[in-house]
């Protein structure tokens, strides 16, 4: 699974409950850029973020932070 260097969407793995089966952020992302890595942790797989926020708003443990992508910051 590809990974973005310096991702604008970051996940606090201490809060993330993907290991318990949660897939909320992966499900709601319109551009489908969040994925599980080999260790079962969520990461930003593609630099295709619309900075729209469903992932951050729907995350049950508030583990996600969306930043404005660098090019337009």
């Amino acid at each position: 699974m590809p990974k973005v260097n310096q991702p604008s969407v970051t996940i606090d793995h201490d809060k993330c409950i993907a290991a318990k089966g949660c897939r909320t952020c992966i499900d709601v992302c319109p551009t489908d850029i969040l994925a599980l890595d080999e260790e079962g942790k969520v990461h930003m797989a593609y630099d295709q973020c619309w900075y729209c926020l469903p992932c951050q708003h729907d995350c049950p443990t508030k583990a996600i932070t969306v930043a404005i992508p660098y090019l337009l910051r």
């Binding site: 319109p30 973020c49 619309w50 090019l71």
Partner: peptide, 15 residues
């Protein structure tokens, strides 16, 4: 292409 050069930095939902 948005002036920022970011392919997904569109007004509309880029989907």
């Amino acid at each position: 292409l948005p002036a920022s050069g970011y392919l997904f930095g569109t007004y509309e939902n880029p989907c």
